[in-house]
């Protein structure tokens, strides 16, 4: 009841009665301008978070694939060198290489877990940026004023300018909450901007290392396949195997899988550029949809690596 009396106070009646409406309209117009700036900035955060989530998914795929190619390359080496080894050397080799690969897979597991954490950070950022709470809270505020209006007719019939007070209050609340959202995002950028910058630098290093390892593993397998299926059979005196020409064509065309690895190494650099643009309020200069599409394309290319020739 006290709340109802407060709403009936001179503040509301005074504004309407004493001609302060124009000042209120100016205030409302100013809020609208600020609201549109906040909306642009919030949209930047939303776009950046989309790029971040796409990147985290791509890293997970790359890490998974790098483990598989490492195992395949090592198997190729073991099979190739086996005829020249004694039983003791073979036993020692298989045990030691299995141990090293298990160690590799454990490290890659940690990198995947970390990529998922990074992805969940970007998802949270995106959820806040995309949140429809300003509209929902604005509507809830209108609901309160309308409920008050049912209790007291003077509230129901009150207007700000020509707008019913419920609509006016709801509109202002929407703007205020949108600002709260934008301020929360900017606050996050200030508090953890350095963490994200460091993260993206480390990601650049991680992707570069993974890409180099994967490139070597893939290239070695492609070379060995070329050697055993095409070059050495051609050099020897024995008749060529059936399908030799098709094998040769497939091998010569397989350079595409190496290009996908090189593209993957660029993903972290591109995301870092987008982040720097976000911190400087220049994200509109970055074509974020294209960046997201490029990162997603990397996933497709990396997955196509699974079709690489794997015979040692």
């Amino acid at each position: 009841m006290r709340f109802i009396r407060a709403c009936k106070s001179e503040v509301l009646n005074g504004w309407v009665a004493t001609g302060r409406v124009p000042a209120v309209c100016i205030l409302f117009a100013s809020c609208l301008v600020l609201s549109s700036c906040a909306a642009v900035r919030t949209n930047h955060f939303k776009q950046f978070s989309q790029a971040g989530v796409a990147y985290s998914n791509a890293v997970t795929v790359l890490v998974e694939e790098s483990g598989s190619t490492a195992i395949d390359a090592d198997s190729m080496v073991l099979v190739k060198t086996r005829p020249g080894l004694s039983v003791a050397d073979r036993s020692e080799a298989i045990l030691e290489h299995n141990r090293l690969l298990r160690e590799r897979l454990a490290i890659l597991g940690d990198l995947k877990r970390h990529a998922r954490l990074l992805g969940s950070y970007f998802e949270a950022l995106g959820a806040l940026a995309e949140s429809d709470k300003p509209s929902q809270i604005g509507a809830a505020t209108e609901g309160v004023v309308q409920a008050l209006g049912k209790l007291h007719p003077s509230i129901q019939s009150a207007k700000i300018g020509n707008a019913p007070v419920a609509d006016f209050v709801g509109g202002i609340t929407k703007i205020v909450v949108a600002h709260f959202k934008a301020a929360a995002l900017e606050d996050e950028l200030k508090k953890h901007g350095q963490t994200i910058e460091r993260e993206l630098e480390l990601q650049q290093g991680a992707l570069r290392a993974l890409a180099q390892q994967m490139r070597t593993d893939l290239q070695a397998q492609i070379q060995q396949h070329e050697s055993t299926e095409v070059v050495v059979p051609f050099a020897r005196d024995a008749p060529l195997p059936g399908g030799w020409a098709d094998d040769r064509k497939g091998i010569l065309r397989s350079q595409m899988s190496l290009a996908s690895v090189d593209a993957a190494a660029d993903a972290a650099t591109k995301l870092k550029i987008a982040f720097v643009a976000l911190t400087e309020g220049q994200l509109q200069l970055v074509d974020v949809p294209t960046l997201v599409a490029e990162i997603n394309a990397i996933v497709t290319l990396i997955e196509s690596v699974q079709g690489k020739p794997s015979k040692p």
Partner: peptide, 22 residues
Amino acid sequence: LTEIRDKLVDNEKGLEEGRTEV
């Protein structure tokens, strides 16, 4: 990879804090 992994893990606290704040 171990060295890179260790540095990434060091940075996880900040990421978790950021996620919690958001």
